[in-house]
Each structure stands twice: as C-alpha cells, then as structure tokens.
Design a protein around this nucleic acid. Structure first.
Lengths: 94, 94
DNA sequence: TGACTTTATTCGAAAAAACGAATATAATTA
DNA sequence: TAATTATATTCGTTTTTTCGAATAAAGTCA
C-alpha cells in the first residue's frame, strides 16, 4: 500500500497552481462557470493548451465539469483557492 | 527589456512551494531560525539536498540567511507564507 | 448516417526540475 | 599555514513538465 504523505499532497497541490495559465483559469472560474471555448477566447490560447491545463486542475480536485450538449462547463470545486492566489499575488507584487 | 508578468511571478512562487522538503523547511523556520546542520538532523536529509532547496527558497525571496562563524542561519522573510501553507494543507487533508 | 462542433487525449520532442556524488568556498582553530 | 567544520555549487543523469501538432471521442443536427 502506498500512503501519500500530507506534505507530498500539499506539494502536489502547489504544483497544480504553478503555471500562469492554470492560475488564470482559476480566476476566470471564480467569477463564472465557463466552457473551454470561452476560455480559449478570453485567454487567447489554443484548445489543447487549455484542455491539458484543465486536466491538471481536474486531477487535483480543483475544478469540476458538467457537459451541456457538446460544450463542457467548468466550475471551481472550492473557492478558498482564490483567496490563496490573491495572497500570493500580493506577496510577489510587493 | 523583459517584463515579468504578475501571473508568471505568482506561478514561480507556487513552484517554489511545490516540493515537500521546501514546505518542511518553511515550517521549521516558522518556529525558529535554524542552520543547515540542524535542518539536516531534523529532516534526516543530506546536506546538498537541503542546501539546494534553500537555494530555491532564497531565489524566490522566501528565506534570508545570516552567517555566524561557519554556520549560516536561515529565517523566513515573510511569515504570511506559513498561513498559506496551512490553508492548502487543510484543503488537501479533507 | 455523415458532417460538424466541442473537448479530450496521445505522441514525440524540448525544457525544466531533481538527485546523488563530488568538488569548491569560507570561516575557524590548532 | 594546515586541518576542520559548515555550507554552497557543479556535474552528469534521470524524471517530470510543457508544448505543438495530430488524432480521438462524444454530442448534435441535417
């Protein structure tokens, strides 16, 4: 049995936050749910770029998705993460 | 001129937090200043492992060092980071 | 069913991070 | 000055992450 340590999990979570595109996606989702095609338009990035980063966020339990027709809408599972990002932005912005 | 974007800086900061050893070092320093040899003993890791992770933390402005004789003591530059780590530990621990 | 839309996944290559081992540096002390 | 202690840095390698491009899958609609 492989037990994953709390420090490993915490480090993994920080790693999920360690890409500018993923941070931007989280901020977008903090305001509205959004489908991939809308993120592409707002962030001006291609589909596979967005989609791959969403995969990381999904794998870390940060976002969840729900399909509506051909579109898939994403939302944040827990909005606490937005406050954490704001705190770090404040630290690095000083 | 290369301007580094706030999102890039924020992502870099999260990357600095994305290793279990670095998180442990930050927690140790949240209680006391500490030299490398003490960290080696407490964390049971070898010198170059600790030292290299301290280099990452230094490069990101998370710790600062001051020499006393042959020893170099490290402290946190900003304790806000400890609260951020606690929040993430709480999220991933649920 | 076939074309179309939207999104996910895979592939191969490039870049970055991490590691163990070795070496270098800086202060101290004999 | 030589040996010692404490720490930083470098080297070569392995592992992980990222990326662009291509392909696959799932739903819709004519």
């Amino acid at each position: 049995m492989v037990t994953i340590d709390l420090y490993d999990k915490t480090a993994e979570y920080f790693k999920a936050l360690s890409h500018p595109t993923r941070i931007k996606i989280i901020e977008l989702l903090s305001r509205n749910e959004m489908c991939v095609c809308e993120m592409m338009a707002v962030l001006n990035l291609d589909q596979s770029h967005i989609s791959r980063h969403l995969m990381v966020l999904r794998a870390n339990g940060i976002v969840k998705d729900s399909r509506e027709g051909t579109k898939i809408y994403y939302t944040l599972k827990n909005k606490d993460i937005v406050k954490i990002i704001d705190e770090v932005k404040k630290i690095v912005g000083e």
